[in-house]
Design a binder for these strands. Structure first.
Length: 402
DNA sequence: CGGCTTTGACCGGCGC
DNA sequence: GCGCCGGTCAAAGCCG
């Protein structure tokens, strides 16, 4: 960043020396920047890993404590958060650009179907490319210790669901492939054309474990066919491939944030998630569009009935649609960092604080731009960032917002 | 042959 | 009570 390109115009013999000198300085500057970026990235990764570990430990601990009557999201819901509301919640996450969906397996959706009382989402998510195959064979982590008795019939589920709070996570991602690879194996069990939306909605069931209650719905966004909307419901009762843990953390964190909120919210996005009873909605919108963004993280709340298909496709955003307050969307696009926070709830602030922290750490504008550009252009980075943000938020929330 | 997709039928919730 | 609609089931077909 400190690019002091001084190319002196001194002719003659010293000219070459000057150029050499300036080039050296330039390289030095680039190196410094590179180093800073590396450090920052390492820091972020480090924090992420540490938090992820803590998160899992806490979750497990809490889970074991309360295991009796309810099932907690493995990924770390705090008891208090969880107990706050048992209504159905809907969390929506949108991952920007393409997440490669190499196989046909898509995203994960977790739906706590009927487990007697739980609601949690243990999602596995695809972190892009790599995961070759998720299959049951390569579980990376166990998100949920809980063991739910199996499956009930779908009808039973519905019945249970109506009376029990259930969290749902909606992931919006720009993806050209039919589905996103989220680290789990899915089996399509149905398809329906929702009224008002020409795009058929596909129903998938997690097949990693025969008893896994997780289901997901995949549908194209009518407004933008390149956007894939995946809604997960339930919690995996089996280990999830490492590749899917990032998303799992992200979605669960989002859900936890949502759960910790006051209440349930209205149905979300019409084009996406199916209409469901009043749920709270949190949207992480990573359908980044670098060019369109003004640059930076932006938090903004939107009207309650955020059902419109016009979700801010800005980068990374969580948009919790809260019943009472309405919905909010936190977006990341490329540029500087900016926050528009009308009225943020406690959990919203978790994200805000983190984002602020983030922005502070990268005080230099150039660096910021570089980062944001990287974020908006690299889906995998988006996923990681999303996971970090959500994880941190969840961690804070779980610890009583320390 | 096993697993997955497709697709029509069925069921229950909800609004009128 | 009726019809609409979302979600699921399950038979049939496809594919590796």
């Amino acid at each position: 960043m400190d690019e002091n390109y001084k190319c002196s115009k001194v002719p003659t013999t010293t000219k070459a020396d000057n150029e050499l000198e300036s080039t050296k300085q330039e390289m030095t500057g680039v190196r410094e920047e590179n180093t800073r970026l590396k450090n920052l990235l390492q820091q972020v990764e480090k924090d992420y890993k540490a938090l992820q570990v803590q998160f899992m430990d806490m979750s497990r601990k809490e889970y074991s404590d309360k295991n009796r009557s309810s099932i907690f999201p493995v990924n770390g819901w705090s008891n208090s958060d969880y107990s706050n509301d048992r209504d159905q919640d809907l969390v929506s996450l949108s991952l920007g650009t393409n997440i490669h969906a190499k196989t046909k397996k898509e995203n994960v959706l977790a739906k706590p179907t009927c487990e007697r009382d739980s609601t949690e989402l243990g999602l596995g998510c695809s972190s892009e490319s790599s995961k070759t195959d998720d299959g049951p064979t390569s579980p990376g982590k166990i998100l949920g210790p809980e063991i739910r008795e199996v499956p009930k019939t779908s009808r039973d589920d519905e019945i249970c669901q109506t009376s029990v709070k259930r969290a749902r996570v909606c992931v919006r991602a720009r993806c050209e492939t039919p589905t996103m690879n989220d680290g789990c194996q899915w089996r399509k069990y149905g398809q329906k054309t929702a009224k008002g939306n020409p795009c058929p909605r596909a129903y998938y069931r997690c097949t990693v474990s025969p008893s896994c209650p997780v289901r997901k719905q995949v549908q194209r966004c009518m407004a933008d066919m390149s956007i894939l909307i995946t809604t997960y419901e339930g919690t995996h009762d089996h280990p999830i491939p490492i590749s899917g843990t990032a998303m799992a953390s992200t979605t669960s964190a989002a859900a936890s944030m949502l759960l910790s909120g006051p209440t349930a919210s209205p149905p979300l996005n019409p084009y996406g998630p199916p209409p469901v009873p009043p749920y709270s909605t949190v949207t992480l919108d990573l359908t980044t569009e670098p060019s369109a963004t003004r640059g930076g993280f932006s938090l903004h709340s939107s009207p309650p009935s955020q059902q419109n298909p016009t979700f801010p496709a800005t980068g990374l955003s969580f948009s919790p649609v809260e019943p009472n307050t309405g919905s909010s969307v936190w977006g990341v696009s490329g540029g500087g960092f900016s926050f528009d926070l009308p009225e943020k709830s406690a959990h919203e602030q978790k994200y805000v604080s983190y984002l602020e922290k983030l922005s502070q750490s990268s005080s230099q504008q150039a660096l910021t731009e570089t980062l944001t550009r990287a974020i908006s252009s690299d889906p995998s980075f988006q996923s990681v960032l999303a996971a970090v943000v959500s994880t941190m938020a969840a961690a804070k929330g779980g610890e009583g917002g320390k």
